[in-house]
Design a binder for these strands. Structure first.
Lengths: 148, 148
DNA sequence: GCTTGTTAGTTACAAAAACAACTATTACCA
DNA sequence: TGGTAATAGTTGTTTTTGTAACTAACAAGC
């Protein structure tokens, strides 16, 4: 008869983080999925280009910590849908600079508005001090110390 | 020229939560993957049976919020590896009660020890008050209010 | 110049996940 | 009873992901 340890699965940080991440992503996922037929990597690429401006695929890989094959496929989809255009760089012809089309920018702004409202709703459950602390802790756990 | 909004992707709660969840899961993932060849759903099932004792597949679905087809296949794997045994319930023959074998319990204890140590390392970056607040917030975001 | 190594991005194939349809058993109720 | 609906769990099919191998362009050393 195995005597119980005080280990609690619900308090295991990676597990709890995953539960919170999944649950808190659900409603937003429904929007980009139903409204634009996008996948997770696709909205992330869209948002990177929307918030940071022109970037290369590798820039997005680094910043978003997503593997290059996923980025490659997401970019293809976004280009097909005319949300993104690519342009070979003149200095280095391996590189392609990515940016949003006007249609892509419209989609980005639409989703960004949803994201802002949605995030405000999530934050409303807590005090602003709690939110600040949460962000600090999550950034440290994510390995996003200040820079990057 | 799109004037910048104050939206910050890195502060968008679902995004930040996902980054933290992914990063904080990596090192533990390597252990259950390399040491036991397990997938995410498999260690989760193992841990549910280890920490809560005998459960049915549906119990695990509800508690862990994982789809039943994923549970079904994870259980198959664990049964093949002799970590779990199934027993048809007598009251309701649709139901099967799942529990760990001695080998499964050994694996569970081994991984639990790793998890505890790993979690302690994560928590060590913060004060105990901060950790308590983080847990409270994550549970609320995950929709795990007290019960369940 | 030529070899060797590195980087940007794509493609091919295998593993895993999502989703729908299925079997078997139980519950409800007319 | 008999018929319909609900539940537990599985299986099959399609998407999506992960991994490795690939092409193309540049870079450095000789």
């Amino acid at each position: 008869m195995p005597q119980k340890d005080d280990f609690s699965l619900q308090d295991f940080t990676p597990y709890l983080l995953n539960q919170a991440a999944e649950e808190s992503s659900l409603a937003f996922q429904r929007v980009y999925k139903n409204r634009y037929g996008m996948l997770r990597t696709e909205w992330r690429v869209l948002f990177h280009l929307g918030t940071y401006g022109e970037m290369t695929a590798t820039d997005i890989c680094t910043k978003a910590r997503i593997h290059k094959t996923k980025i490659s496929r997401a970019v293809q989809k976004l280009v097909e849908r005319r949300f993104v255009v690519r342009a070979r760089s003149d200095e280095d012809r391996r590189v392609e600079k990515l940016k949003l089309t006007p249609a892509g920018d419209t989609a980005y702004r639409d989703l960004r508005a949803v994201a802002e409202e949605y995030d405000a709703k999530l934050r409303a459950q807590f005090t602003s001090g709690e939110v600040a602390l949460l962000r600090m802790m999550l950034k440290r756990l994510a390995g996003l110390e200040s820079a990057e």
